[in-house]
Amino acid sequence: MTSPVVEVNNVNKVYGGRAEASYQALDNVSFSIQEGEFVGVMGASGSGKTTLLQAIAALDRVSSGQITIAGTNVTDMKEKELTDFRARRLGFIFQDFNLLENMTVYENIALPLFLQNQKGKSVRESVYRAAEMLGMEDTLSKYPAMISGGQKQRAAAARALVHHPSMILADEPTGALDSGNAKGLLETLQHLNETYDVTTMMVTHDAFSASYCERILFLEDGRLYKEMQRTGSREEFFKQILDEQAEAGKNKL
């Protein structure tokens, strides 16, 4: 936990041009994530959490402000550099797995490496290592259609990890999973974070998922209004999050 992996400074994102039609998805957001942290971003639908994730992932441009990832300012990069940056420095896990169903699990996991023109043995080793970390060595030769949702999401996690990214970005990774599989995946993410020091940023609206994080940023209407650090056990943290949500809900009444 030495240097910040992500630094977000006064980021604004406005959709639409004209004053009356415009919509401020992010409103002066600033925060940072240290190396090896497991940070959650919580908020209701429409609070801007996905916009924030996309901005950090450089999938979307911000209207103003600065985002620095591993010392690189992504806000003024060119399209081509951004693509390259995404491919080398970031790993993604999406709600709907985003596995390519026309490729085997092995090929799916190996894809980021193929794209960097790595070959042969080094690819195989990396893929097997990532699969091992996620306990899915047995499914490598299968096609996504042949495995369960939980396995799919773990395959997606393996793909996110395989090229040693600076950070993993997870967008509602448990959204399409049943509770058993969701728990499994969260434990896996936590395990990866604790054992291998993988910096992770997870966007979620679910308090249970969020309770696996070390720190949670709360978003509402594009504003970062609260930050919570886990101090005790996960169960306590879960309660704190629920309380916070209840509090926020009460204020609206």
């Binding site: 992932a57 999938l59 399209e79 081509k80 693509t83 390259d84 940056f85 995404r86 491919a87 080398r88 970031l90 993604f92 999406f94 985003n98 390519l100 026309n102 894809l111 980021p112 794209l115 793909r159």
Partner: peptide
């Protein structure tokens, strides 16, 4: 499929 590939950093 192509959107996903672009998300994980495959250039246009």
């Amino acid at each position: 499929r192509y959107r996903m590939l672009q998300n994980i950093g495959v250039s246009r």
